[in-house]
Design a protein around this nucleic acid. Structure first.
Lengths: 208, 208
DNA sequence: CTAAAATGCGAGCGATCGCTCACATTGTCT
DNA sequence: AGACAATGTGAGCGATCGCTCGCATTTTAG
């Protein structure tokens, strides 16, 4: 009996009063999630932490998964916005510089509320947000592929699509892995240098 | 109230009869885990699926986490053994060839019981096996660093340790990401070519 | 001001689940 | 064969948790 729970909100808050309530609930969810982990997260606990009745919680969220889903949506939105904005800004730079910017950007994105990011990352597959993650991923992916295609003559790659997949995977992974498993590497400035080097050598462009 | 549950076995099976029981339980755990997910996994369900009394289960596993922990240990052991064996075998090859072998090896490792692999991957952080994962990771890491250091004069990198981190992260991520999110890319032979290219260009060695 | 809508409340139901324990069965050793 | 250890059994306790529902309070609209 798979729990194919719906994570869409049950009712939209109309008055300011209820919007505040929803905000409070989400904040409490984040706090409980970081402190207790997903298993310690119960709707009762969230309601208590938010100082809100359990009944109120269920007016807006059909179940516990919906709470986390909302948090994930919000978090992905934020990160995505930041990354996409920077990506367009970077499109004009020389490729070597652009690469470095993207690497730095990725690191900065992971530095925002890293505790929440860690928990959410771990919970994404459980909530059925894999599809949504894939969407965001593919936006990045196509964006990078576009950049590569536009500068095809400057770089040594054949298929921009495949190269974009490799690059996005690579950069995300190095940063993500450093953030989760080896935090000391994140603080080592040589990480940026070396990752940039990986990218530029792959693309066949000289580092300045 | 964090659930710092112990995942070490409660009692070791001594007679063959009980060893069979433990094996049956672990197999059932795997089946239930793949079919129902971690949330559908209950000790009662596992016992039922194994055709074993719930009491017997608790003779050998103190709790539900211990079941998954045992599965993770076993799975990591298998993968690790395969990878390490191949890594030593590959140490003699020309670097470009070695790179390709490692990439192919990683793909093959991910192709063994990928469903179970996926679920376990998602559950590793919850079980508190992150430390163990890090251990295995660092063995790989040091092994690669050793290879790089031994051939320092053939490659264009300064710090074998940092480079090993980058390479291990990169290869693992590309394969892992392809396996989880874009399975069609796994079946595209160009993925191996392109990943190998990434490695060889980074190392500054020519592809044959 | 008043009716209706929106929001907030929380006791508690029903279901599940982890786990124990008292007992039965099987294996080992002498 | 007898004694003791190892193993297997499953009813059911206690606790938790998701979630509902009837009702109180606040806001909006006419």
């Amino acid at each position: 009996m798979q729990r194919q729970t719906r994570t869409t909100p049950r009712k939209r808050p109309r008055q300011t009063r209820s919007k505040v309530t929803v905000g409070t609930i989400l904040e409490a969810t984040s706090r409980v999630l970081v402190k207790q982990g997903f298993d310690g997260l119960s709707t009762n606990a969230v309601a208590a932490a938010a100082g809100v009745s359990i009944g109120s919680l269920y007016q807006y969220f059909p179940n516990k998964e919906a709470l986390v889903a909302a948090l994930i949506d919000r978090h992905m939105e934020e990160m995505n916005a930041a990354v996409l904005a920077e990506l367009t800004r970077v499109a004009q730079l020389p490729i070597a510089e652009a690469a470095r910017c993207v690497v730095e950007l990725t690191i900065r994105a992971h530095a925002i509320d890293p505790d929440l990011h860690r928990v959410l990352t771990e919970q994404v597959p459980r909530i059925g947000k894999l599809a949504r993650l894939r969407e965001v991923d593919e936006i990045c992916h196509r964006m990078v592929a576009g950049l590569l295609a536009a500068r095809r003559d400057e770089i040594a790659i054949r298929d921009p699509d495949l190269a974009a997949f490799i690059l996005v995977s690579t950069i995300e992974a190095v940063v993500h892995r450093a953030a989760l498993l080896y935090p000391h590497r994140l603080r080592d400035p040589r990480l940026v240098d070396e990752t940039t080097l990986l990218v530029t050598r792959y693309l066949g462009v000289a580092e300045n």
